[in-house]
Simulated assay, not measured.
Amino acid sequence: MSEAAIIVIGNEILSGRTLDRNSNFIAKRCFEIGIKVSTIIVIADIKKEIQKAVIKLAKLYDHVFITGGIGPTHDDVTTEAIASAFKRKLILNKKAKELLEKYYDKRNIELNESRMKMAYLPSNSKLIYNPISAAPGFKIKNVWVMAGVPSIMQEMFTSFIEPQIKKGKKIYTRNIDIFEPEGDIAKKLELLQKKFSKAELGSYPFIRGETVGTNIVIKSRQKVLVNKIYFKIKLMFQ
């Protein structure tokens, strides 16, 4: 089973100014295509921090998905940091330049030095196309780098990254509400998890008005097993 890490880059996320929607979207898509997301981190627009995180996670996981920091401003340092992490030079990518020229010419906007920055990519990287605002992302080895704007990132991921990724076996899931506090049923769930090691059981407490309960989520690549555990839990807590 392929595993992935997600790196969200941006001071605006860490300050609370902007809500991170990107990791949630990527995690959901990965679940749908059978890739397990094992790590999600948010880091600042600091080259050394980005570089350290990329070097570490690229060794640990099959895929590293990165969003943010590839725009035209001074604090967009992701591209440079990743080039350094892989010991690549930043070069003017002719195809990226062509895409930007076409986009800005059509809108009668100057392709100035700041915007041209988005055409400089690590050598021998592959483009991730951006059909919304033209400035591409890129891929080096198992690291996929996308825009931070959610609508652009989502288009990059679904249209250009997903088709290139080897899909895993579908993960089936069911959930059931048990109207007992989580602490009261924890031991039974622990024993059930040990018995059915090829499934993953998660428990999530809830309060609805004056009602206290626990939502139990069952996940497995075996649909029959998910259903078996579901009905077993239902009988246990009736």
Rank of each mutant, 00 (worst) to 15 (best):
N142S: 03
V37E: 05
V54M: 03
K141Q: 07
K169L: 11
V217D: 03
C30H: 07
E113G: 07
Q193G: 13
F138S: 01
F31Y: 09
L201H: 05
M153Y: 07
V217G: 07
N130W: 01
S133C: 12
M118F: 01
V212G: 02
V217H: 08
E98G: 13
N215I: 11
T78Y: 01
I207M: 13
E3P: 13
K28P: 08
I70H: 09
L189V: 01
K195P: 10
N130R: 10
K94S: 11
K94E: 10
F196K: 04
S23I: 09
Q154R: 15
I9A: 05
R88N: 00
K139P: 01
K97V: 07
K139T: 06
G183K: 10
R21M: 13
N112L: 04
T214P: 02
N108I: 11
S114T: 15
A53L: 08
L127H: 05
V149P: 12
Y172H: 06
T79L: 08
K94W: 04
K194T: 10
V226S: 03
P131H: 13
L189I: 02
R29A: 14
S15N: 09
Y103H: 12
R208D: 12
I7K: 10
A4H: 02
K187P: 08
W144A: 01
F157G: 04
L14F: 05
F196C: 06
V217T: 11
W144G: 03
E101Y: 10
M153R: 06
I50Q: 00
N11Y: 12
G69K: 09
L191V: 11
K188E: 11
R208G: 10
Y103M: 09
